[in-house]
Design a protein around this nucleic acid. Structure first.
Lengths: 135, 135
DNA sequence: CGGGATCCCCCGCGATACTG
DNA sequence: CAGTATCGCGGGGGATCCCG
């Protein structure tokens, strides 16, 4: 039944949130996903299942220790991933998506779908724009 | 219909994009939406229809001239909004979503839906996390 | 009215070194 | 192996001034 999303669907929430309020849920979600590494970690854990810290680091190319740890702490705090420490020697820490985190994959799937459908058009628009505005 | 999004749906794109590549469509879309003002401008134009520059500025509280202009230029470049100049005195400039821009509202609707369904759980998780990790 | 140009500050992030 | 602590810089973004 989700044919076209109208302005009303965007505007009228059941809870009446103001999309322009700084702490409205939508804003906060966008801020979270906007963080460069969040979606990568979520997708990695979604695709490959539970992963150790070093496996995540190896998989997500270019991420620094600091940012990976920081991102994971944030996700854990938000209830999107679980952190399991196995106190063997050497230490072992596994990260896994929670149900909540897994539900985020649905949203990321929608993003991915739009991107693959329309980013070509965006590229074309850019090329056209850059061409006419020859700087 | 799409019941649950699986890892396969996320992983396997028709075009075989690598979600971890820097310039894959999904990443670029997330980067775009991650920009603080982009979604606000898109939603504002989506809800209220065409708006003048000053109307946008009034509506999106806290945005500076620089960032509003910069955001609008980017959206115009990406083919998401049109910029129409009416050379009267004083000058009048109207911004409006393109069809492509309007299709982005669908995605933002999905984001909003997830946020309103689950951000409560995120808040609860945070409170719990902060309580146990009494710093 | 709708911007462009400039200055400047802040802090996010990477690199490095160290610890349980 | 899985982090924490510290330093340093680069650039994103606000404030301000000016122009068509």
């Amino acid at each position: 039944m989700a044919g076209t999303a109208t302005a009303q669907q965007i505007e009228a929430g059941a809870t009446g949130y103001d999309a322009f309020a700084l702490n409205c849920p939508s804003r906060r979600l966008i801020d979270t996903l906007g963080d460069k590494w969040v979606s990568l970690v979520v997708v990695a854990l979604g695709i490959r299942g539970p992963l150790r810290y070093s496996e995540l680091a190896a998989q997500i190319e270019g991420v620094s220790q600091k940012m990976l740890t920081q991102t994971l702490r944030g996700l854990e705090r938000d209830g999107l991933v679980t952190r399991t420490v196995t106190p063997t020697v050497p230490l072992r820490v596994d990260y896994e998506l929670t149900d909540l985190g897994r539900s985020l994959l649905v949203v990321l799937g929608h993003l991915k779908e739009w991107a693959e459908l329309h980013m070509g058009a965006v590229d074309a628009a850019r090329a056209s724009y850059d061409a006419t505005n020859a700087s």
